[in-house]
Every structure is written in structure tokens, then in C-alpha cells.
Design a protein around this nucleic acid. Structure first.
Length: 256
DNA sequence: TAAATTTGACCTGC
DNA sequence: GCAGGTCAAATTTA
């Protein structure tokens, strides 16, 4: 554990130093455009440092980034800056019938966060909503247990793509599965990239109970926006101010 | 044809 | 008043 602490301190210190360099560059941006040449490298380094720190933290904490109550404002604040125009292609709808949206807003307690390369976790989820999030490039997707209607299972999860170009997903789980299905076997796709180790997490075992089917959205719910996001991230030449905002958000996220 | 997804409307909390 | 979370009809997919 001490070694991990040391590793964490080193990683975060590196990120902090890189951030400082970047800050200096941005500060003198108007006077010296040459500094922008290494902005991308610094951004990459900072991003990797924070994620590395999270990884270290996670590896000593049962595969979860955080177990504290999660504020929805926090998650949105951490994950974005701009939103794309996404064509919905929806035909006009008739007037609304009945009572829609009559619900109690979910408490932020009993929530678990993780950052993963894939949203697939071996369980069966049904997507019930998608929302454009303010200051975020990617929409947030809402999933509930496929067996909700059968077993009244209350497990939910939110998925939002990270905006650092790493193709990682920020996943928040709410509640526990109550359906009498066995916990999933470890998916072969688990692991890789910056996905956090959750195979040891007891909470994940409580999250869902049916590995029977995995919807295509579990492969990549953002497939349609992939091209768009790639355009943003692959250029690597976004406005320094945008990058600065992303990094500040990321740092705030980590602090919390 | 049943199940899953999409997406605008609606409601709640801040 | 706004942003986020959920509902549910329409649409798509297997």
C-alpha cells in the first residue's frame, strides 16, 4: 500500500507539474505562440497522470473510483465542455397522454462510479433514456435492469463518454439488483485500457443479475457520435482554453 | 412479433 | 428558470 501511495504521489505530482507548465504556456500564449507546440504533449501527460492516479487509487480500493455519494452535477461538471449537434431523426409526436415523468428523483446515495474502456459488464441492461448534458460533448445514457418489469429490479446505471479522446466511459451505478438471477461470469472483454478493476468488487456482483443478453449499446452507445468525437479529439489542436477547461474539470473531479 | 432503442415531453430539485 | 432524470409512444431490430 505504501508503494501505491508513493506511486500515486509521484503520478499526481507529475500531473501537477505538467499542469503548471501548461498554465505558464497559456499565460504567455498571446506573447509567444511557440509555446503551443508542446501543449498537446502536456495535456496528454496531465490526463495520463490523473488517470494513472485514479488507477492506483482504484487498485487498492476494490475496483471502484469512488463510493461516496455522487452528485449528478459533479459528474456533468467533470466530463465536458461542448456539445455536438446530433440529428435525432424523430418524427413529430402526438400530444402526450397520461402522467409522464411522475417520479421521485433518485437519491445520489448508494451510487458507485467507475471509468471503463467499455460499458459492457456482462449484465443485461435496457436503455431508457439519453440526455444531452450541458457543457458536455457526449450525451448521458440511462440504463436500467432488463428484468425490472419481471422482478422489479431497481438497478440503474448512467454512462457518459469521457471527453479526453481516450474512448473511456464514465459509468455510475445506482442501487442493487434484486432479481433472482445469478451474478455474471467475468466478461472476456473486461479489463484493458484504463478500465478499472472491478472483478473483485462485491458491489458489482450486486449490481445486476443477468448476463443473458447484452444489448448493442453495451458495445458502444456512442457509435453514432464516434466520428464526431474523433474529429474533435484526433485533431489534437483544440483551443487551449477548451483544453484548460477540460483539465480544470478533470482536476476538480479528481479532488472530489 | 416481441424486445429493444430512440427521443421529445414532462416532472423534480436546485 | 434551468438542467437533469424518467416516461412512454414511435420506431427499429432480431
Amino acid at each position: 500500500m505504501d508503494m501505491k501511495k508513493k506511486e500515486l504521489v509521484e503520478t499526481l505530482t507529475k500531473g501537477r507539474n505538467s499542469a503548471k507548465k501548461l498554465q505558464d504556456i497559456l499565460r504567455h500564449h498571446k506573447d509567444n505562440d511557440d509555446g503551443l507546440v508542446c501543449v498537446d504533449d502536456l495535456v496528454t501527460e496531465i490526463s495520463q497522470s490523473f488517470y494513472g492516479g485514479l488507477l492506483v487509487l482504484n487498485s487498492s480500493n476494490s475496483g471502484e473510483v469512488s463510493r461516496v455519494p455522487v452528485s449528478t452535477h459533479l459528474s456533468s461538471a467533470c466530463l465536458g465542455n461542448q456539445r455536438p449537434e446530433v440529428y435525432t431523426g424523430k418524427t413529430p409526436k402526438p400530444a402526450v397522454k397520461g402522467r409522464r415523468g411522475c417520479y421521485k428523483r433518485r437519491k445520489t446515495e448508494d451510487s458507485r462510479m467507475k471509468v471503463s474502456e467499455t460499458i459492457e459488464d456482462g449484465y443485461a441492461w435496457r436503455k431508457y433514456g439519453q440526455k444531452e448534458i450541458l457543457n458536455s460533448n457526449f450525451p448521458r445514457c440511462y440504463f436500467r435492469c432488463t428484468h425490472k418489469q419481471v422482478h422489479g429490479c431497481k438497478a440503474l446505471k448512467q454512462v457518459q463518454k469521457l471527453e479526453d479522446g481516450s474512448n473511456m466511459f464514465h459509468i455510475i451505478y445506482f442501487g442493487h439488483h434484486t432479481c433472482p438471477c445469478p451474478p455474471p461470469t467475468t466478461s472476456p472483454h473486461h479489463g484493458g485500457g484504463l478500465e478499472l478493476d472491478c472483478k473483485n468488487s462485491e458491489n458489482d456482483h450486486n449490481l445486476s443479475n443477468s448476463p443473458s443478453s447484452v444489448t448493442k449499446n453495451h458495445i458502444d452507445p456512442y457509435a453514432k457520435e464516434e466520428d464526431l468525437s474523433n474529429k474533435v479529439s484526433s485533431t489534437g489542436s483544440s483551443s487551449p482554453l477548451v483544453w484548460k477547461e477540460i483539465l480544470l474539470n478533470e482536476f476538480e473531479c479528481f479532488k472530489n
